[in-house]
Amino acid sequence: MDGNGSTTSAPTDDAPSRSAAPESVTSSAPSGEVLEVIVDGSSISPNGATLDLKVGEPLSITFKADRAGELHVHSRPEQVISFEAGTTTEQLIIDNPGAVDVEEHETGAVIAQLAVR
């Protein structure tokens, strides 16, 4: 304690050092498959793209949208992916094999059909 009744601690030599940039920031592309979804009002693309995935393989979905919305992923269990207006990226992982439709909720458009093996 110091003379004012409070404790102070001095830095120790065994404290981890801080680097200028966090190690988790990388400039590499996402691993796994990538699906780009463009939402322009009620116009959605792609429409019925087919992708082959392995169970547990990540699928990065990049949204370029003029409105918010959501995708319904008809997997087991079903999943919902929300997106906002602008450009965003979400990751999808399917844990069970089978045919999986990915549908844009507002329009009902089937954006992609995934063959998960």
Rank of each mutant, 00 (worst) to 15 (best):
D66F: 10
S43Q: 15
L35N: 05
V39M: 09
L59P: 00
S60M: 08
G32Q: 00
K64G: 00
V55G: 03
S24R: 14
D66K: 11
L51S: 02
T50I: 08
G32E: 01
V55F: 07
S28G: 14
K54G: 13
L51T: 00
D66C: 11
N47T: 15
I38W: 15
G56Y: 06
S28V: 14
S24G: 12
G48L: 03
K64T: 05
D52P: 04
E36C: 01
S24T: 12
P46Y: 06
V37F: 15
P58Y: 07
K54Y: 05
V34S: 13
T50K: 11
A29V: 02
E36H: 08
A29E: 07
L59W: 04
L53H: 04
V34Q: 14
S42E: 12
P46C: 03
G41R: 10
E23V: 08
I44G: 08
D52Q: 13
K54S: 14
L59N: 02
I38M: 12
F63M: 10
V34M: 12
A49H: 05
E36A: 10
L35G: 01
G48F: 04
G41T: 08
S60C: 02
K64V: 02
L53I: 02
L59F: 05
P58N: 09
D40G: 06
P30A: 06
A49Y: 05
V34N: 11
L59C: 00
K64E: 10
I44A: 08
L53R: 02
S42I: 07
E36I: 09
T62M: 12
T62D: 08
A29K: 10
L35K: 04
S28C: 06
E23M: 08
L51W: 05
S43H: 13
T50C: 03
E36S: 13
V55T: 13
D52Y: 09
L59G: 02
G32L: 01
P46A: 08
G48T: 06
L35I: 03
A65V: 04
V25H: 12
S28A: 13
L35M: 07
P58S: 09
